[in-house]
Amino acid sequence: MWSGDELDLDAYLERIGLRENPLAPGELRADLATLYAVHRAHTAAITFESLDVLLGRPVALDVKSIEGKLVHGRRGGYCYEQNSLLAAALERIGFEVTGRGARNRTRGDSLLAVTHAVLVVTVDGEEWLCDAGFGHQGPREPVPLGRPGADVEQGKWTYRIREEEDGVLALCLLRGDTWRDLYAFSPQRYHPVDYVVLNHYSSGHPHSSFVGRVIVQRPGDDVRRALVGRELTSLHPDGRIERRLVGPDEILTVLDREFGLRLPDREAEELVGMYLAGD
């Protein structure tokens, strides 16, 4: 399903910092401990970013292209790339992995199209939501789907699954004293080819939120950071948000310092040029 047999698993594990972890490649099993370790390491190491869309580069979803960019090129990616890579790795390890399509709910009451890709992994008969591609508000660890309404604490951050009509499940994040919906998804299974269609819209349609602006995000343990356009925000577990503007002279430094992202020279030059043109 996810072309896990084509993935260089050793290179992937080295990229996310698990190669020299006690969970060595030969000891990885399709169990909950491994799922947690891989998910958490992936979200820590690989930044959410859609800069190729901004720069007019094609976003390929075959495993070798994603591996070349996110693993060997040490770039980041957005949900289709991130979760396709995670799915391939988990499948290669031996997990049962299926896809879902989700509606973003972080933009008020607007009904948005299904454009977000998430994964459901089954371990010992229990389903777990896995998502390495929702940016700074996304979960760092798997979230159990069979316990609607239960608080799921991940360090200083708390998530919850809410069950709605027709089997729809919503992932919620506690910010301060307020629960906020992140996205909702139905039981319908999605396949890699479905993500190709969603990726076509997200990477090229003029109404896509990724077209025409910088989006780089990272879900830290203590602070969640996001660069959208020129605004850098820092989200704290108590709900506080700090904001500041980023100028052309510091954009590359911010990408490196705050997000661990270094662009190749050509892309870096183009990005700075876009920031200068906007002044």
Rank of each mutant, 00 (worst) to 15 (best):
D151A: 15
V118I: 15
R160E: 02
V143G: 03
E127T: 14
W179Y: 06
D131S: 01
G135A: 13
L111P: 05
V152W: 02
I161V: 15
G135D: 10
L182V: 00
L173A: 10
P148K: 00
A132T: 15
E165S: 12
L112D: 14
G149N: 06
L129Q: 03
E164T: 07
G135F: 09
T122K: 15
G125P: 14
T178R: 13
L145E: 15
L169S: 10
D131K: 01
R140Y: 07
P148V: 00
A117S: 12
F185M: 02
F185E: 05
T122F: 05
G149S: 06
R160F: 05
T115E: 12
C172Q: 10
L171N: 03
T122C: 08
G155M: 04
G167A: 06
R162D: 04
E165K: 07
V168G: 08
G155D: 07
C172P: 02
L112F: 02
V120P: 14
R175T: 12
A117Y: 10
G146Q: 02
D177K: 01
E126H: 13
V168L: 15
E153H: 06
R147G: 10
A132D: 11
P187E: 04
A113V: 12
Q188H: 09
C130D: 10
R180Y: 00
R162Q: 11
E141S: 13
T122E: 11
Y183H: 02
P139S: 04
G167F: 08
P139A: 03
D166I: 01
Q154L: 11
P144H: 11
S110K: 07
P139V: 02
R160N: 06
V123N: 06
L119Q: 13
P187W: 07
D166T: 03
V114W: 03
R147Y: 14
L111F: 09
G138L: 12
V152Q: 09
V114R: 04
P148G: 01
P144A: 12
P148N: 01
R160A: 12
R162M: 14
T158S: 03
P187T: 04
L119F: 12
D177E: 12
Q137Y: 07
L171A: 04
P144Y: 13
T122S: 15
G138T: 14
V152E: 02
A150N: 08
L182G: 00
L171C: 06
F134T: 00
G155S: 05
A150C: 12
R162T: 12
A184P: 00
K156E: 14
D177R: 01
Y159R: 13
H116R: 01
G149W: 05
